[in-house]
């Protein structure tokens, strides 16, 4: 094993676990028989961690995120979010969800888009305005609150959708390939910004990605998954410091972790198409 990388063979049973999954499985019944989207997933995520889920299509990384969000219900196992079942956690506003597409309402201005969850959750108008102003500043879109989504670039739209997920102060940020549709340059920039945001807010972030460099650059923990059935093949605790300039990606440590991720994917037959 490469030096400096801690191996995590067993599931940590932390008392401060924000996400705690034990034997979580999800089987979809389809016309072609059952599909095992998730099988026996054990995972514990502590407060303030940045966890990336990486793996090929069909490995269940998005499904796991959706289970945490109570958008899907596991067919077996126990899943706890902030010590609650996912449904209760959602009602307690435990998480904000960022989808692959920004999904801003075209008929609302950026500010009104960010206010959408606040309206639905019944925040008073004055507090809505204050919160919108605060998160707009957080994602550096102060000047764009009055613009409509089509007037913003794709990267800016995705930043607005992150602001929307942050507006109601959830502790957990669930991000499902949020930068998958953006070009490499914009993506690098947003990766830096997400790291900075994570540093400032101390949120727990679950981040689904296809990209090895993105996963290694961002995470304190990398969960490598493989398909058929969707399962975890490796969990890597990153030794990289929390402060990460972009050029850390040329360091030996970085390349070693990336190598181990690739090995994990290979072991899970991820490269066999």
């Amino acid at each position: 094993m490469a030096g400096g990388i801690a191996v995590m063979p067993d599931v940590r049973v932390a008392t401060d676990a924000v996400i705690d999954a034990r034997g979580v499985s999800l089987t979809f019944a389809t016309a072609d028989g059952p599909v095992h989207a998730l099988k026996d997933v054990d995972l514990s995520i502590g407060r303030g961690e940045f966890v990336s889920f990486i793996g090929p299509s069909g490995c269940g990384k998005t499904t796991f995120l959706r289970c945490v969000a109570a958008l899907e219900t596991p067919t077996a196992g126990v899943l706890r979010v902030n010590g609650m079942d996912p449904d209760a956690a959602r009602r307690a506003r435990a998480y904000g969800y960022v989808f692959q597409a920004a999904g801003l309402y075209p008929w609302r201005t950026i500010a009104r888009n960010i206010a959408l969850p606040l309206e639905i959750m019944g925040f008073p108008k004055a507090e809505q305005d204050a919160r919108v102003a605060r998160v707009l500043k957080l994602v550096e879109l102060e000047a764009f609150g009055g613009k409509f989504p089509w007037q913003l670039s794709g990267g800016m739209q995705q930043r607005a959708s992150i602001a929307r997920a942050l507006a109601f102060d959830a502790d957990i940020l669930l991000m499902d390939e949020p930068f998958g549709a953006l070009d490499e340059i914009v993506r690098d920039r947003l990766n830096e910004e997400v790291l900075a945001l994570w540093g400032r807010t101390g949120k727990t972030i679950l981040f689904v990605t296809h990209s090895i460099p993105e996963a290694v650059y961002l995470s304190t923990k990398i969960v490598v998954m493989s398909p058929r059935p969707g399962r975890i093949t490796d969990v890597i605790d990153s030794p990289l410091p929390r402060e990460r300039p972009l050029d850390i990606r040329d360091s030996r440590e970085f390349l070693e972790i990336a190598h181990r991720v690739r090995e994990g994917l290979r072991a899970g037959h991820a490269y066999e198409v």
Binding site: Y97, F99, E119
Partner: peptide, 26 residues
């Protein structure tokens, strides 16, 4: 995706109608 987004806010059916479906139908 848009209906999922509202589910993550635990929006009611009526809220989904007024904030999403009705404006989208205009």
């Amino acid at each position: 995706m848009q209906t999922d987004l509202l589910r993550t806010y635990s929006a009611t059916g009526a809220q989904a109608f007024w904030t999403l479906r009705l404006p989208a139908s205009v």
